[in-house]
Simulated scan of single mutants.
Amino acid sequence: MQFARKPKTKAGFKIIPGALIPAFFTLLTGCAALPDLAPYRDATLQLRSTVLVGGSAVQSGLDAAAGSYEAGDPAAKRIRESSQKFATEWRARIAAADSLVEYADALNDIARSATEGAGAARSLADSLGKLASGAGIAPPPAGTVAAAADAAAFVYAHIAAVRAAQSLDEALQSAQPAVDRVAALLTGDLQASLNLLRASHRLQRDALVLKYNEEMGFLKALTRERKEIYGRSSLRPEDEQRLKKLSEMHEATREWREPMEKALAEMESTLKIRVELIKSTQTAVAEWAAAHRNIAAAVREKRSVNVEALVQATLEARELVRRLKEL
């Protein structure tokens, strides 16, 4: 009867059969390394900066609109009240942006710790709770039954699911709907600020046009008269003389038309960049949530995280910030 040969030894160490090598290294390492989340954290920091500048852009637009009216004008008073209200509300959005950074930091710490079990899930739940709180989503009162559509009930139900998860993979998947809801909340706030910015721009434009109201009335009268004369079947000598006079008067309006048109063009240019900045920030927030979804897949599939779209969105926002500062 033959027996299987014992593995040979070398220098006092037992040689492990090839079939057992993968299992051996699994025992040594516990699991494959978690993905590097430093790029996600860094991009989140840039996103926070973009949110701050976006708020400043809206605030500047409101202040410029208020400054277009005479002191004591009811319109100026309404705009300044809106500006003060916006400043108060935007501080809460800055706190939300801070919570995004804290959450990304926490995710990075979990990844660096290389833990994937229930402990990692509980840590993620704690961080997700802070994210929700920072975004202004408070836990629903104990004992109440909230509607499924209620943001607080929805988010904290998912936080509970994260806390009950037995693995980081499961926890990240349970966290995603809550992350999406927080991102949607911030995106909605950005949209509200965009609407406010456009409304203030209209008021600012109206104030400038009102400033030149008499001049514009005179210009329209010149235009109507020229059109009426040119519409005649034939022109008399006196018509020719009148057209010449009208042309001279029209040319004289350049003295006030050019400054007005320049001011209007500058308003439109500034508004365009401010609007693009807010929209770019909305895109970056959406990409932040999408990158979080990619993190969950990367942990599950043991691969690197692709945050290129998020990084690109923040870079585009940074370029708009640069252009805005140059105005």
Rank of each mutant, 00 (worst) to 15 (best):
R78M: 01
M267V: 01
S200T: 07
A106W: 02
A33G: 05
S233H: 07
A33H: 09
V155G: 14
K8I: 03
A284L: 07
A75N: 10
K77W: 01
E308M: 03
D239R: 10
T26Y: 09
W90V: 01
L320S: 07
I159T: 11
N213F: 14
A148P: 00
S127N: 05
D206R: 13
A125Q: 09
E258Q: 12
E102W: 02
P22L: 15
N213M: 09
T187R: 15
L45K: 12
A142H: 06
A19R: 13
A297V: 03
Q173F: 09
R181P: 03
D169I: 01
L45V: 08
F154D: 13
L277F: 09
A57R: 06
V311N: 09
I79R: 04
G119S: 10
I159R: 13
A192K: 14
Y212F: 11
G55C: 09
T223V: 02
Y69H: 05
A118S: 13
V307P: 02
D180W: 05
G12S: 07
Q84R: 07
S280N: 06
K325W: 11
D169F: 05
Q84G: 04
R232W: 05
I15W: 08
N306W: 09
A297E: 10
G54I: 10
R112W: 03
I94H: 11
A290N: 09
R322V: 02
A252M: 07
G72Q: 06
R91W: 03
A298G: 04
A192T: 10
E116A: 15
D42N: 12
I110W: 10
R181T: 13
S68L: 00
Q166F: 03
R163V: 00
S49T: 12
A11P: 00
P7G: 13
L208P: 06
D206T: 09
L196R: 07
A153N: 10
A183V: 04
S60T: 04
Y69L: 02
K8A: 12
R300W: 01
V179N: 04
V209N: 10
L210V: 00
L52S: 12
G143Q: 11
E316G: 11
E238G: 01
K10E: 13
E170V: 02
D42Q: 12
G12D: 11
R181Q: 15
E70Y: 05
M260W: 08
P17Y: 04
C31T: 11
K244A: 09
R293Y: 06
D180S: 14
D63L: 10
E255Q: 10
A142G: 13
A298F: 02
T115E: 14
R274S: 11
E214H: 03
A309G: 05
G188C: 06
A175M: 05
E89Y: 03
